[in-house]
Simulated scan of single mutants.
Amino acid sequence: MADYLKLPAISGKLFRVVVETPRGSAAKLAYERKTRVFEYSRPLPVGNTYPYDWGFVPSTLGDDGDPLDGLVIHQAAAAPGVVIKCDLLGALRVKQQDPDGSKVRNDRYIFCPHKEDAQDEPVAIADVPQDLRREIEQFFLSSVLGTGKKIKLKGWQNAAEARASLVEGMKSFKRKFSH
C-alpha cells in the first residue's frame, strides 16, 4: 500500500497534491499515517462544503506537525487518494490557535492542475479573482467553527513567496523523517 506522505513533493516544476477531501464534500476526510487510509474526520458546519479539492503536499511538514495543506482550484472533483500535479498560485497566510492555546502558522497553499497541453504561461494568485479569494477566505474561517481552533488570516503570498515556504516544509520533513 502506498504511503502518500512520502511521495516526492515535486515532479519537474510541478507540485503534487494528494486529495483528502473532494470538492463538494460536507465532511472533512483525513489521511491517517498509521493505517494509510483516508478516514472520516468530522462534519463541516451546517451548509458548508469544500469549494475545491482539499489535500496536502507530500514530503512536507508544517508547524502543526502535519503535511502542508493545499486547495486545488478546478471545476472537477477528484476522489480521496488522487494525486494531482499542480502549478502553485500562491498561499493564504494563516495563524492558528489550537484549543490548548498553542499558536502555529498553518498556511493554505493554493494550486491549479497543470494542463499537459498548455503553454508554459505563468500562473499566479493575481490570476484568481479578488471575489474568489474572499470566498476562499470565508470558507476557511467558517470551516473551523466547532473545532475549538481559531484562525487569523494574515494576507496572501505570491507564488515565489509560497514556493519558499513549501521548500522550508520539505526541509522540515527531510530533517524529521530521514534516518
Rank of each mutant, 00 (worst) to 15 (best):
A159G: 05
Y40K: 06
F139G: 11
G62Y: 03
Q138N: 15
P58E: 02
V94D: 00
L132C: 10
F173Y: 15
F15Q: 07
V104S: 13
K154H: 00
K85A: 14
S142M: 10
D53P: 04
L141Y: 07
F140L: 15
L153K: 02
I110P: 07
T60A: 05
D98A: 13
D117C: 03
L68E: 06
L89T: 11
L88D: 12
K149I: 06
Y40C: 04
L88E: 13
E161A: 13
N106Q: 10
V167S: 06
S11H: 05
L145Y: 12
F140N: 02
D53Q: 02
K95C: 04
V123C: 05
A91G: 13
P45T: 10
A162I: 14
L14A: 15
C86L: 03
K174W: 07
A76H: 04
F173M: 08
T147K: 12
K154L: 05
P129Q: 08
Q138R: 09
L71H: 11
G62H: 01
R16Q: 15
Q75W: 08
T60R: 00
Y109T: 04
A27W: 12
G70P: 06
G65E: 13
R105N: 06
G70K: 02
E168K: 15
A160H: 03
A118T: 13
L141A: 09
Q96I: 01
P99S: 11
R163S: 05
T147W: 08
K154M: 03
W54L: 00
E39L: 03
M1F: 07
L14M: 10
R36W: 02
P45H: 06
P113L: 13
Y40F: 15
D69A: 01
F139W: 08
K103C: 09
S165K: 09
K34L: 08
L29K: 03
F173L: 05
L5K: 01
F173H: 15
F173S: 07
D117R: 15
G90N: 04
N158R: 01
G47Y: 08
K154E: 01
P43H: 14
V57G: 00
R108W: 10
A27E: 09
Y4L: 09
H74K: 08
V46T: 14
F140Q: 01
R42V: 11
T60W: 05
A160E: 13
W54A: 00
P99Q: 08
P8S: 11
R36Q: 14
K13C: 03
G81H: 10
S172Q: 12
V19G: 04
S11T: 07
D100A: 09
